[in-house]
Nucleic acid binder design. Structure first.
Lengths: 137, 137
DNA sequence: TTGCGTGCAAAGGTTTTGCATGGCA
DNA sequence: TGCCATGCAAAACCTTTGCACGCAA
């Protein structure tokens, strides 16, 4: 199941994603965007690579964009299990929230509401400081 | 854009959703489930009604179920704008979190991280007290 | 050389749309 | 009666899959 070969396409994809992290993509948009920068890859291959990256934890699903799955690249997959994420609904940027306040939140929700929060799956949406006052997308 | 007629199909759908709130559905699953309880409705009509309910705020999107949009009915759409949601990844139930701790969280994130959280869009995932220890779905 | 990766085209699902007909107000 | 809602089938998408060939190790 794990990838065994580090192919040109995989290299291209990781390179592109790393250069454009913190942005949202659907497979179709990513395919088009990569083509415009000179990368060529069959759409089926892209789907297969994307699925691998999901399984490996490099990608995280994002609020849906009409009709297609949307995702985002995470620079440090392992680290992302230990903190929360803030996502700006205007510019689409992802912020990694690493602070003790969230631990207090977990503790509170656990004690008072009997609920165990899963950090890596939980995303808080809103507007970042750059986008306060701007329109929702 | 707003619905004008309260048709039999719309009545059936709301009736069914109210009777089975706190559960997740894809349009296909809902269609099948309703059919089994004797309701008849064309799939296209169901899609159109679901879209209306989304626009009216009765439905909220949920983590995706392979290949299809998933959603959940909210009993009190207006109230849901003022609190947070906890979603159990095992049983699928939605919990409405109404407590001052979350206000503190908002305040903290705003002051320390310059980020304005949008309550109605933010969902925390995890395991509820009934499901702690059980497998993830 | 071995076996995974890729491209193409076809298949399988989901969601939307056009049009004639039905039904609410 | 005037419009919106509905059903059906077709169309438009998105995603997966089979197969033969290409390529990394």
């Amino acid at each position: 199941m794990a990838k065994k070969y580090y192919t040109r396409h995989r290299k291209d994809l990781l390179e592109y994603l790393q250069a454009h992290a913190d942005l949202d993509y659907t497979v179709a948009k990513l395919h088009k965007a990569m083509k415009e920068e000179g990368y060529t890859m069959g759409i089926a291959t892209l789907y297969r690579q994307i699925n691998s990256l999901f399984k490996e934890g490099y990608l995280t699903p994002i609020q849906r964009d009409d009709g297609a799955e949307q995702f985002q690249y995470l620079k440090n997959p392992r680290e992302c299990f230990v903190h929360y994420h803030l996502k700006c609904k205007v510019c689409g940027r992802l912020y990694h929230l690493d602070c003790t306040f969230m631990e207090d939140l977990e503790e509170h929700v656990k004690k008072e509401h009997g609920f165990l929060i899963d950090r890596s799956d939980s995303m808080l949406y809103g507007r970042c400081s750059d986008c306060v006052g701007k329109e929702d997308k």
